[in-house]
Design a binder for these strands. Structure first.
Lengths: 242, 242
DNA sequence: CGTTATTTGTTCGTATGTATC
DNA sequence: TGATACATACGAACAAATAAC
């Protein structure tokens, strides 16, 4: 039935499937999880194993166990983040959350890695401003970004970002009235280290990674960004649009 | 150092990181993995643990251990699958593999799930033709698709697909000369059941899931498809185009 | 009001897998 | 290779809280 002895604990596999079912709205009628004994029978495992899985979901604030009553579902549903010609981080999630918050974790000016200079068509080792940010929707972290801007043109953009809390506004302060998404590359990996902490994920959680290059209206690259989204909280959508 | 009691065995976490490093081209210069003792030191674990991780990668045909010499890297690099206005499964991967093969696993005509009828703007429970396919590049499975076509318009499209091995050709046989990608939704989950077998993945492996709706030139929905890509073999790219 | 059924919470014990030395 | 410590999974209870009668 379910894979054992594969390097992934049974309780975690079950936690994954339950999280998915919750996000899929499978229990929306009652707002409660089925009883542990029922879940154990459904997955063909011991009740203890189901309890471990539920404890893991409770840790993530997805469910709340209540003795004598059952296990309540606290959160469900994905947010959608649209990727298109004019992709803006804050704007994309705008209507889907009551409160959206951006936080600048770190800013530095340094020689950029080769992947960055290649994408921005800069000479290898060119200095760039690097911004590390996290965005939260209704108190839940939903994205973690690492951005690079050519330092020659955008020195001090970190201060502009700090003032406005917006990349769009910060770029405008440097004369970039508008910018377009040139390319986006999407992959997915298991969460690691800093991302796990910042996005409040448990080990084994999946992050969607979008690597993007933005250009100004003259088609000159202005930003290279790698944004990580928790796959259980965000879906990416691609909308054909001008 | 690395997370314990996390539901994911250390050797699997390390296998994940090594697979990522290999795909990232970190060992391209030599084409060999560093010695086990070096890897053990780098990850801060016992050599046995590294050996378990390497055994797992060998099982996936990613590396090949050779007595007295070292561990050779067999495969690396991602394929890129472009998503755009005119997304075609075979065409997208065309130039990146020597040999591309599509296989029809199953065809059926049945009442479609609600998610499908909603997306295709059909009445709930409308009959659809369902096609289950796998695509392989150079002998490696790279995608697993489930497609739905309204049965009233496309009855027998399975035969057309069987003849041509192409959705584009099969649709053309039904008078759809061209079709466009209306929407795409991307998420990522752990591989399960049938997908694990068909894509030859190990448990805990990540699959990128693209759910798409295609319409004909009159903007009438013709196809609903859910395609699963192994995240360690495929990256999705979003290209703004005409 | 107490009784009963349901449901989560806890404690034993045992066997196997994981990781180190 | 064997010894050791801990995590995982199962099984069989029993305790505690809640709801319905």
């Amino acid at each position: 039935m379910m894979e054992r002895q594969a390097g992934v604990a049974l309780w975690r596999q079950i936690a994954d499937r339950m999280r998915l079912a919750i996000n899929n709205g499978d229990f929306d009628e009652t707002g409660m999880m089925p009883p542990e004994t029922v879940l154990a029978a459904r997955f063909g495992v011991n009740r203890h194993t189901v309890r471990s899985a539920l404890a893991s979901l409770a840790e993530e604030d997805i469910v709340q166990p209540m003795q004598g009553i059952g296990t309540r579902i606290l959160r469900s549903r994905h947010l959608r983040f649209p990727i298109g010609r004019r992709t803006r981080l804050s704007q994309g999630l705008g209507a889907q959350a009551r409160e959206l918050e951006g936080l600048l974790l770190e800013a530095a000016c340094e020689a950029a890695p080769q992947a960055v200079t290649d994408a921005l068509t800069l000479a290898p080792g060119t200095a760039c401003v690097r911004l590390e940010t996290v965005h939260s929707a209704d108190g839940r972290p939903v994205s973690r970004s690492t951005s690079f801007f050519p330092a020659s043109r955008f020195a001090g953009i970190d201060a502009a970002y700090r003032r406005s809390g917006s990349i769009t506004a910060a770029l405008r302060a440097f004369g970039v009235s508008d910018y377009l998404r040139k390319s986006t590359e999407i992959s997915a990996v298991h969460a690691e280290g800093d991302d796990m902490q910042r996005l409040r994920l448990s080990p084994g959680a999946i992050v969607l990674t979008a690597t993007a290059v933005n250009t100004d209206l003259a088609d000159v690259p202005v930003q290279y960004a790698r944004t990580r989204f928790p796959a259980d909280r965000i879906k990416l959508t691609v909308e054909p649009e001008s």
